[in-house]
């Protein structure tokens, strides 16, 4: 996994609450057995008409957001199905950071395993970002080391992240390798409690 320390990128505002993982990546794309290549199907039913043409009424199709790498959403982002295909699609499409007022648990966890930084900010700050980014291009800088975001419209905000999650992203850890350092403790647990 690629580490993240700092990131600067263009915001794409998705002003909807309860965006579920069925929307992020509809089930017809879950049949693939690879990890790559899901970006083309991101928000598929919102982005495309039945005939496969782009839907003009969906903002991600607006050329203004073509280079976006920071997705700003509303409340309860990523709820529903546990499918990791959702963060795979978001990452593969080119997003590195997702900012929202709150996240669903499984999605939030899945982000860290895939080098995506999920950031929770207070509602008024998220609303400001959404409103500005709907009008014009807004760049935002994210500094994971110091846990700060700064937009070019003057928002400066600190965010919380658990130290374990932070280390994972900063180092681009393979979590299984980390755990295998505890193999002895697992062996011992099995001998004592879980034969």
């Amino acid at each position: 996994m690629e580490p993240i320390k700092q990131h600067e990128g263009l915001i794409y505002p998705l002003d909807r609450s309860n965006v579920d993982t069925d929307q992020i990546i509809p089930k017809q794309f879950l049949k693939r057995i690879e990890r790559q290549g899901f970006g083309q199907f991101l928000f598929y039913n919102w982005r495309f008409n039945d005939d496969g043409s782009l839907r003009e009424d969906f903002s991600l199709n607006d050329p203004m957001y073509k280079e976006a790498t920071v997705l700003v959403g509303g409340e309860n982002f990523g709820c529903g199905s546990s499918r990791e295909h959702a963060p795979w699609a978001i990452q593969d499409y080119g997003f590195k950071v997702v900012i929202a007022t709150s996240f669903a648990d499984i999605f939030y966890n899945n982000c860290f395993k895939n080098g995506i930084l999920p950031i929770v900010l207070p509602r008024h700050e998220v609303n400001d970002l959404l409103n500005q980014a709907k009008e014009e291009k807004v760049m935002i800088g994210v500094d994971l080391v110091n846990q700060l975001v700064k937009s070019d419209h003057g928002l400066v905000s600190a965010f919380d992240i658990q130290p374990y999650h932070k280390d994972m992203l900063l180092n681009g850890w393979d979590e299984i390798s980390v755990t295998l350092n505890y193999a002895e403790a697992i062996d011992q647990y099995e001998t004592e409690k879980a034969k």
């Binding site: 546990s82 990791e84 295909h85 966890n109 979590e175 299984i176 755990t179 295998l180 697992i186």
Partner: peptide, 30 residues
């Protein structure tokens, strides 16, 4: 699978995980 919570009906601690965690559990049972 997110509906793993179903098994909680028995007084088990049961929860859904993502595919990276599936791999993690397969490899380490933890």
């Amino acid at each position: 699978d997110s509906h793993t919570s179903t098994h909680g009906a028995f007084g088990a601690l049961a929860f859904g995980i993502g595919t990276s965690e599936v791999e993690h559990v397969l490899a380490t049972q933890s």
